[in-house]
């Protein structure tokens, strides 16, 4: 795989869509994929280990109402509602294992792709 396709800053929505689960698990940043109803259907191993939570507790649940509550404001969740095409890196603070942790989030959404992504780099 070409390098830009595995980097936090440069990976494309279509790259993520075509990856197998094992490939996403091998990335060095967290990958969260959400259905249009905000239920999570991708939660890679990197993110699971950073958050200290088993993917089975995340997959299938409305992400912004449960584990992703801290993103449920105008800074993240609202942007997916407001902007049909979105590719932006925002500085953020997550509460990984209840510890405030500075991260960068990359928000990815395209009008012709159903799934939207939140990428997490520590």
């Amino acid at each position: 795989m070409h390098d830009t396709k595995t980097k936090f800053e440069t990976v494309q929505l279509t790259d993520l869509e075509s990856m197998a689960q094992a490939e996403r698990d091998a990335l060095d940043f967290g990958v969260i994929g959400l259905r249009p109803d905000t239920r999570a259907d991708i939660y890679n191993a990197t993110e699971a280990s950073m958050a200290g939570i088993d993917p089975s507790r995340v997959l299938g649940f409305p992400f912004f109402a449960t584990i992703g509550q801290c993103m449920n404001n105008f800074m993240v969740a609202q942007r997916f509602e407001d902007e049909a095409d979105l590719d932006e890196i925002v500085p953020f603070v997550l509460t990984l294992r209840m510890r405030p942790t500075r991260v960068r989030l990359r928000l990815l959404q395209a009008r012709d792709v159903e799934r939207r992504y939140v990428l997490v780099a520590r």
Partner: peptide, 22 residues
């Protein structure tokens, strides 16, 4: 802040802005 859960961060981060949430 030592520990904080996601719901608290949801409210605190927009209040804090440039001040940071440490």
């Amino acid at each position: 802040i030592g520990m904080i859960n996601p719901h608290a961060m949801k409210h605190l981060l927009p209040l804090a802005g440039a001040q940071g949430v440490e």
